[in-house]
Design a protein around this nucleic acid. Structure first.
Lengths: 230, 230
DNA sequence: TCAAAAGTGTTCTGCATACACCCATGT
DNA sequence: ACATGGGTGTATGCAGAACACTTTTGA
């Protein structure tokens, strides 16, 4: 490499992950308590420096797996943050990603890191390490946009779910209230849900029908120019 | 810095700009012919390595000004590309930005670089240097989304414009045909345009009324939760 | 008088919204 | 029997989509 180029090759790139989950009531994000300086004992998004020999969009999988055990997830790139002083140890540019997981799957398989990781309601998060508050905010905004265009929400629900659960999820993501009848009407006429014939059990009220997302049907509709608009 | 961290601080970050313009008929992008290897004599997006002591979002202004003389522009960050081999000279992560300019202003003030820079119709671009085709595609898609949410299009038109010009612009950006009467109706009822009382001159047909964008009115409507949907 | 683009209204359809009561189950 | 959430239909208004002719100007 030419000598006058060398001064440019002195940066590090990191990746920060916003892992969204839904517990049936609130939209949550997985945070990790930092054990090291800087920002020791602060809660932070799971993230790390990217290895220089890894592809950016691939590295995000490795980093999240190392930190949390979660693997094989779909990530959406959100935004890249490059303020000069955002990292105390040097010049680090960071790219934020978000992913959506079924929170129950995660709770059933806690990995060794679990003591340091915790789900937080998004409404109750503040004062994260570094500029992670900004990354989180940007991720929420992007999720809110995306969820109106593609049926992403189902990634956050168990395989079988009720229409009420689905409505609560959209209300939590979009931070709005929806009308029950209008919501049910709109969702059902999209023909994206399959009735399973099963019912809720062990509830002290009329049990709700359990539905599942019909992915094949979605792919058919998508090809026809279908637009998912909740 | 600890020694085991040093191996991470070996990357460079670059910035690539998609400068959109509109000539009254086609959506165009400003490209520069590379004089140096790699990709010598290829057309490329204006871009350069970021200086390690500059903020990412600030650096984009400096880089575009150095290359084209264009300054004081608004940039929207698009996406960051980090494939391992995307740059032949080393590990370079690049962040793409787009901006919108009034093409006439630019043509009236060519800077010294002009011989190497040229506007290309977006439909006719292919085989750019590096992964710039991907950056361009991603930028177009982001522009198409944004232009339906905020009244960005006016950045591409002269101060005074006709409704036909505005319609042609949206048709070019969105790559669709629109109905004249419905378009005029919808735009005018938004109350975002001011009639200037002036008319087109030197046209061999009925001259059209000239309008201008009413920015103050937009800010008032925006606060009320107005959504610009063309 | 011709060519070329500007400008104008109505109808239809579908979707968003608002709104209140009965149903099925467990305790 | 009561408490709890599940489940249902209708009426209204608004906005998008389709569609054809007259007007104004310069050449």
């Amino acid at each position: 490499m030419e000598k006058n180029l060398k001064k440019y090759f002195t940066l590090a790139v990191s990746i920060d992950c916003v892992v969204f989950g839904f517990d049936g009531k609130d939209l949550k994000v997985l945070l990790i308590k930092r054990g090291e300086v800087p920002f020791k004992n602060f809660w932070a998004l799971p993230g790390d420096l990217m290895k220089p020999d890894e592809d950016l969009n691939v590295s995000v999988n490795h980093i999240l797996k190392d930190l949390t055990g979660l693997s094989d997830l779909f990530f959406e790139q959100v935004e890249t943050f490059g303020e000069i002083k955002r990292h105390p140890l040097g010049r680090v540019i960071t790219t934020g990603y978000y992913t959506l997981i079924k929170i129950d799957d995660y709770e059933l398989n806690p990995s060794s890191f679990a003591s340091k990781a915790k789900w937080f309601k998004i409404k109750k998060i503040n004062e994260l390490a570094f500029d992670h508050d900004k990354i989180l905010l940007s991720s929420i905004q992007k999720l809110q946009k995306s969820v109106r265009i593609r049926p992403l929400g189902f990634e956050l629900l168990p395989q079988l779910f009720t229409l009420t659960e689905l409505k609560l999820l959209y209300e939590a993501i979009l931070d709005i209230k929806m009308d029950t009848r209008n919501f049910r009407k709109k969702i059902l006429q999209m023909k994206l849900l399959k009735e399973t014939g099963k019912l809720q059990e062990n509830v002290s009220h009329r049990p709700a029908k359990l539905f599942q997302f019909d992915k094949k049907q979605y792919e058919i509709l998508e090809k026809k120019g279908f637009n998912f608009d909740v």
